[in-house]
Design a protein around this nucleic acid. Structure first.
Lengths: 254, 254
DNA sequence: CAGTGGTCTAGACCACCAG
DNA sequence: TGGTGGTCTAGACCACTGA
């Protein structure tokens, strides 16, 4: 049951570190999120108002505000002018993030393996792909096709095209780290992506590789990812066994 | 081609209205977004730095910063410390928002119709649904099932459960306005939702209603939406013809 | 009416990047 | 070294809510 009076678990915020490179608002947001996830703040609880919180934490109001807003954006709190800030009644949140399948599975502590099916430079990538990458029709691009398994069972086929300069990413590297992690270690910072999630029937080849019947339902995702200079760095066209994978997210109105 | 020198289309910002109820940062963000979408700011262009912009617009830096950040969050700009702010090279953006299918189609100027298949209070909703709504196993809930068509062709089956108090939403209202619009006109402000997008084969009934073969691939979406007090207000379980619908979104790294 | 969040200001210092 | 965005402060006024 939610408490009636406003709540603030002050004792959880004694460790704020002004010398840390982690911003204060992020430290506050992380602790606040922890309090909600572990039940210290119960669903429906109303938070102390932000001015009072700022005073107690010896922080400025904008800093506290930024922290609270970050937790709101994750879908754990709702705010109303004139009313206050409350913990959401029911949450199974998964913020919308620019993550890789590899890291998603890693976080879920799943035993995953990757088999590289294709790995090389091609000059005949589909026009749809070269256009998204911002290169010429017949310019060389790096093509990659992988089979992702969990606990030995094939789960997804990952088809990617990248600018040719990334063709030096090796097969062993891809088998141990995932694509995004390899890009990251080469200094690529992914910032924006457009994606489209759909469904279709499996082709013969896909069905064979995923252990399904031809025409069986597949979940599909097409993504174009851009780095911090706004250049398209990756075009991915993936398909997933729908009994083994789904896209979860939390949406927050502004 | 992107220009070399920093750019700022000052003439587009002459209409800022300090008396308007629309926040200044939102006015600036909207104009900035317009400049990018209509090509006034070209892909790759670098923006004037935010301090200079603030001076030119006679606004404070935090206000300008908030405006720019909003456009970044939409995936139209990328920022790097020490470098500056640039227009993304390629964009087909669709920010992740808490929208209804009805409004999505409306915005796309598609001719849509709705047929109500089920409309009534039930005491035997699936446990999965009552749990998400936060009501007892056999408490009455409002059950709704609709067929959504575009240009007369069936596209999706929308199955929803709501708290019983919403059972007075009429069939004609649902045929003309969509569920979220009806909730909104009753004062419900949706703030947060959790959703899961997947795929599966069509049941016989679904196939029949959507004009498909049984077992044909369907795109599915299950959503729990909460209002501004954090209470679960709607549980939806929808399925879509994958040749007629897909989920598009833009993701931005923080 | 008192209390809440929403907006806005005018500074300050720092971390990072390019030349 | 100079310029950029990232963080933080200490205030102010307003809009909306509920009693």
């Amino acid at each position: 049951m939610p408490r009636d009076a406003p709540v603030w678990p002050a004792d959880r915020f004694v460790d704020l570190d002004r010398t840390s490179p982690v911003p204060l608002y992020h430290q506050v947001a992380a602790i606040l999120e922890g309090c909600i996830r572990d039940g210290t703040l119960a669903p429906g609880d109303r938070l102390e108002n932000e001015i009072e919180v700022a005073r107690r934490l010896n922080l400025s109001r904008p800093t506290v505000r930024r922290a609270i807003q970050d937790v709101v954006d994750k879908g754990l709190l709702v705010r109303r002018r004139g009313i206050g800030t409350q913990v959401v009644r029911s949450f199974v949140t998964r913020p919308v993030e620019l993550t890789s399948l590899y890291d998603d599975l890693d976080r879920a502590h799943v035993r995953q393996t990757t088999r590289v099916l294709e790995h090389g430079v091609t000059t005949s990538a589909p026009a749809e792909v070269t256009e998204r990458l911002g290169v010429g029709d017949e310019d060389p691009v790096f093509h990659l096709r992988r089979l992702r398994c969990i606990d030995g069972a094939p789960m997804a086929i990952l088809d990617n095209h990248l600018p040719a300069e990334f063709a030096d990413i090796t097969i062993p590297e891809l088998e141990t780290g995932g694509l995004y992690r390899n890009l990251s270690s080469r200094g690529v910072v992914l910032k924006v992506a457009n994606q489209r999630i759909g469904a279709r029937g499996a082709t013969d080849d896909e069905a064979h590789r995923l252990g399904l019947e031809p025409g069986a339902p597949l979940l599909t995702m097409a993504r174009t990812a851009m780095d911090d200079s706004g250049r398209a760095v990756e075009v991915g066209r993936h398909c997933y066994r729908p009994d083994m994978y789904a896209f979860e997210s939390t949406l927050v109105a502004r």
